[in-house]
Amino acid sequence: MRIGPESAGIEVKGLWKIFGPKAERVLTSDDRLLEPAALRERTGCTAAVRDVSFEVRPGEVFVVMGLSGSGKSTLVRCLTRLIEPTAGEIAIGGDDVLRATPAGLRELRRHRVSMVFQHFGLLPHRRVIDNVAYGLEVQGVAKAARHARAREILTLVGLDGHAGSYPDQLSGGMQQRVGLARALAVEPQVMLFDEPFSALDPLIRRDMQAEIIRLHREVGKTMVFITHDLAEALKLGERIAIMRDGSIVQLGTPEELVGAPADDYVADFVRDVPRSDVLSLRWICREPDEHDSMEGPPLPASTLIKDAVQVATATALPIRVTDGERLVGVVDRVDILAAMAPRQPVTA
């Protein structure tokens, strides 16, 4: 994937967000290590984000996934201080966000980071074009220029001919395209998505996901994408962070999550994911023993299991799994079938 020239990375270190009175005091005491329920009982505070650290590379699609209440929406709002973090460090493109002045913060929001919201957040009293141009308007861009730019973006998201409509005249999917266009219009380096498609119908959601993949290919922005839908996370994310009770329990590529879940929670999550769609041969190949013929066809280790099926049906010999010139191992029909079979549910 292309890395846009204007993309910026994000660095988050030791981020905390505690809601409630005396949040600071909770942070400095050992209370912060309590379970969420115990913490609320004891202090009346809720720790929505607990000591979260991660890095997003420029141009990467980084997905944060978790159930509702896991703190993922709070986390993404902390990145531009729509919610003020309690402690930690955030840098976007190398600039310290937490130390930014109000004017500096506005600069960041106006030009570098923009956001797409779950419930769209469109202004019902403005036409679509004025909604898209809103970010430019608050920057002080003249009307003709911002309308021209808004029209360009509307074309990009496939909303030609709807410039003069009001948001309530559009379907949910189209409204979210307007939200997307509004975020794109300011040419940000980073785009944040807060469960943008969870309010949409499944079919429209699939279209919009394809749209995001296409946009990312075309404009190459850094994207942080929040979702509670694992399939969506696996589809979009180059790397995925799974959150639970405010902490990141595992951070890795889709393959790593499915192949080596860090704990039962993650394992439970990924249980129903068809492994053959996500895992590559690297995860199932084994050392060749003396019975194995070395005459079978070679395949690269990064081949997805499902893509190896066709080769395996054509030959009875074990497939040689290679990493460049090096032999990593072998995989035969039985190994592939075993990997595709549904697994026993995880029991505690």
């Binding site: 506005r106 980071v113 419930h119 957040g121």
Partner: peptide, 14 residues
Amino acid sequence: SPTAVEASASLGAT
């Protein structure tokens, strides 16, 4: 709508 307000703030409106 709080989302509309948040969206406005996220775009750097004063």
